[in-house]
Amino acid sequence: MEAIKEKLIVSVSPHVRTEESVSRIMWTVNLALLPATVMAIYFFGIRALYVLSLSVMSAVFFEWAFEKFTKRPVTISDGSAFLTGLLLGMNLPSGVPFYLPVIGSFVAIVITKHLFGGLGYNIFNPALIGRAFLLLTWPRIMTTWLEPSGFTVDAKTTATPLMILKEEGIGRLLELFGDKANLYIHLFTGQRAGSLGETSVIAILIGGLFLLWRGYITWHIPLSFLGTSAVIAWVFGGKGVLFTGDPLIHLMSGGMMIGAFFMATDYVTSPMVRKAQIIFGIGCGFLTMLIRLKGGYPEGVMFAILIMNCFAPLLDRAFKTRVFGARKGQKK
């Protein structure tokens, strides 16, 4: 009897616990953003480092300050504020004045995250709301892009490939980059104007595939997001004629990659049910391409993800697995 008692442990459920924790997931995502960070600093120089670290530090500071102010447990070590700051910095042009990342972090952490109840309760992606606030507040600063000139001091302002594509068409884009292969290479490595972290497709892919391999994100959202965008770009992206668009240019330019792998897959603001995730991704892709091809802005990833964030809880509810044997509409 005594021997059996030692073997039998009586406890309440859950009995199988995973080693995962919020902080471990968040720091892994931060790690996955490392390649993109390195490429951002490589292409945009020391200024990129300043903008990124300023935005990270202010995000962590505001998290600490708000939690101190409201007498909650301080959670800056779980990496979520660090991640928000990093993603916000990644979404800024390199030439912004230094007060922009700080104000953006304030909006992201205090208004978007903590006023709605803190981590896990925010409706919208904090980093994207921070960026949307900055874009609407200082439209000129937020759309002044610098050439990727590395560590040289004088960088010229220029237009992003998407702006050229929208304003002057694909002909001008090819003229600037030589031929199509050269254009693809520039877009793939990230040697183009744009927000700090969004330019380098290869760096983001490395980070994204790492997350997929570790199982922290699933393929549902990125694939449906990118797939929908590619199909729409191919069908409607051409000039006047259907099925003549170039999907690769659209996929590799703007914030499409970082949006699909790091923004739309945010645990808090995306659906949990797999089917709902696919619809979520399709919605993101559709809205992105709608804004890019028909809207007033050259880039639509941010607004597309924010709009779909609103629908995440509804999608989850609509696609929730029904209890086996229960009829539709019947209460459990």
């Binding site: 006023l115 606030f133 609407l136 507040t137 200082w138 439209p139």
Partner: peptide, 16 residues
């Protein structure tokens, strides 16, 4: 802060 005179800023101001 240009956003404050746009509709988005109206929602922000009312909410806060």
């Amino acid at each position: 802060l240009l956003i404050m005179i746009l509709p988005a800023g109206g929602f922000l101001a009312v909410g806060i």
